[in-house]
Write a protein that binds this DNA or RNA. Structure first.
Lengths: 337, 337
DNA sequence: CTGAAAGCGCTAACAG
DNA sequence: CTGTTAGCGCTTTCAG
């Protein structure tokens, strides 16, 4: 920029103005400056210097946890990112994806990101990456939860939705079961009767367990009658393993915490010759495209819309923040109430 | 940082060293500095100032063209991004997605991005966003093409692959046809006989048309005998429209430029009661998951691997850059040669 | 309408 | 091992 100023015989400030505030500089001067800039191959202000001075990066950071390292493989995450993208494209901000790797350096990755605000995908209450984002003092919006001081949270009412889908799953059931996400960051898989919502560090999982407990209470089912199989991860190998463990106990109704887990269960069930929903009712969560194909009864929520809302909140374009809408999509994997 | 220095009674440099070069500072001093930093809620060097000074952002920019604004909707793009992400996660760089919107400001979006290098998804030769990336003087790697001075290009040999897949598509054909991507940035749809590779501004499309022409020449088919239907966009409505226009002319073999276009054609063909491959042979391009389901003969390439290569080249971790591998995946939508 | 001064927060380079 | 100096490239503020 100094070069351009020298070459066009004006001060650096005039160049800056010519580039950023056309109205504050005479048309002919501006013309000359722009001309010189082009001639010298100057391609505009250095973004690093500019953002240091202006204290704005025009960039939104999205923090994706360890298990989402391959974010682009997960349809729900990509839908969420698409929603954020929708919002940013119009206004010209960029989107920086900060993938954490589960190590000590995750904190640094977040701290080192030159972004104006953070959007964090649902994580554990004590996730260091989330804490690092909060520590920067910049706005933090979390999808799903946790809801910590210094953050906003965009989410459906997981507890209410869990109640409703559990009702669809467990109707007429005598041997109800849950195919669950991990309860702690150790991601211990396992199977057994009973569950304690208070003992999980993932707020979304906790809320869903509470919803299940609410339903059980209404139906006068003890938590200890509910068989719970925990998948270490929401992926194929762990999912199938947890599904098989569950089926070995012959449940007649399974509330699965994601459409993917439900899909694995349906496939394993069909391989065992079980009829759905007569022998076993199954529900999912999210209503991803495969759910319609499978006839899966599931909780429908619009993650794309939630992505856009997260972006707007993070950038201060919106302040009100009610629960996002959801509904139970009744299909053919459940028995009518 | 100045506050931390003052509060711990050392110079700013010592704080900087304590944070960045643990080995250059006495253990106890470092301890004290870190302690003070924590106490003051100082969460590490300001990334903007640091990147200005170090001239490094630890961030790779990915430029996605206008038609990819909803990048996360497109499975090939997400696979490519996943590959880039694979490479970055290990070394801790972030990934900034710069979505262009097709307007004048696209240039600025690219120029304003604080990234160390650019990866650009296949675009037109005169795409302003690409030119802006090159103008920054930072490394630019383009997937697919164009191959301009100042850039590296990661791609399969589209021309050779087009020859091979056209051979699979057109074997025994008497009424060959192509279902093509747009030829120019105007994206004019249309249908007619003949094609001229030289007249398209999309290098990938051009290379494929050249491959088709090569095959026609080998078979002694004139380009003018080939029916070409151009889809304005690679999406459902435009794709179906172009497919229907093509079917109305009763081709017996169609080389489609993407699996998606091929899928629309197959669906329309089946709706018209055509048998595949007997009445009409169809080929796709990319071998996305749906291709296997459909039994689609297609060009298989690994975009995830190409993404990783783009990232490595852009960050200077790799210099050699041969054509990426590809092969024709023969399935059931084509007649044996 | 244009310019001079000051400094954003940090680190490279070089003393001590 | 620690400190001083200088300056990254820009824009805010205030004066002409």
């Amino acid at each position: 920029m100094a070069d351009v100023a020298r070459a066009s015989g004006v001060s650096v400030m005039t160049v800056s103005y010519a580039l950023n505030r056309p109205e504050r500089v005479a048309a002919h001067t501006r013309q000359r400056v722009l001309e010189t800039a082009r001639r010298l191959g100057y391609s505009g202000p250095d973004p690093r210097a500019r953002s240091l001075r202006r204290r704005i990066s025009d960039c939104l950071g999205v923090v994706l946890g360890e298990q989402l390292r391959y974010a682009f493989d997960n349809p729900m995450v990509t839908r969420f990112l698409a929603g954020i993208s929708d919002e940013l494209v119009q206004s010209g901000e960029a989107l920086t994806i900060i993938s954490t790797a589960g190590g000590d350096r995750d904190r640094d990755r977040v701290t080192a990101a030159a972004v104006d605000a953070f959007v964090v995908w649902s994580t554990a209450t004590d996730d260091p990456a989330l804490l690092a984002a909060i520590a920067t003092g910049r706005p933090v919006v979390v999808q799903g939860g946790p809801q910590l001081p210094g953050t906003q949270c965009v989410s459906i009412d997981d507890r209410a939705a869990a109640y409703a889908i559990t009702e669809a799953a467990f109707a007429t059931s005598r041997r109800p079961a849950v195919l669950s996400f991990p309860l702690t960051q150790e991601r211990t898989p396992g199977i057994g009767y009973g569950f304690d919502p208070g003992s999980t560090t993932y707020p979304v999982t906790e809320a869903r367990l509470r919803g299940i407990a609410d339903y059980c209470q209404a139906r006068q089912i003890s938590n200890d009658e509910v068989l719970v199989s925990v998948a270490a991860r929401n992926d194929e190998s762990h999912g199938r393993e947890a599904a098989r463990a569950l089926l070995a106990q012959r449940p007649d109704a399974v509330m699965a915490m994601s459409d993917e887990l439900a899909r694995f269960l349906l496939e394993e069930a069909s391989a065992s010759g079980l009829r759905v929903p007569d022998d076993i009712a199954v529900t999912g969560w999210d209503d991803e495209p495969s759910a319609a194909r499978l006839g899966l009864t599931t909780v429908a929520q619009d993650l794309r819309a939630q992505g856009a809302i997260c972006a707007r909140l993070a950038l201060g374009r919106q302040t009100e923040n009610p629960y996002a809408p959801w509904h139970v999509m009744h299909r053919t994997t459940t028995r009518g109430a």
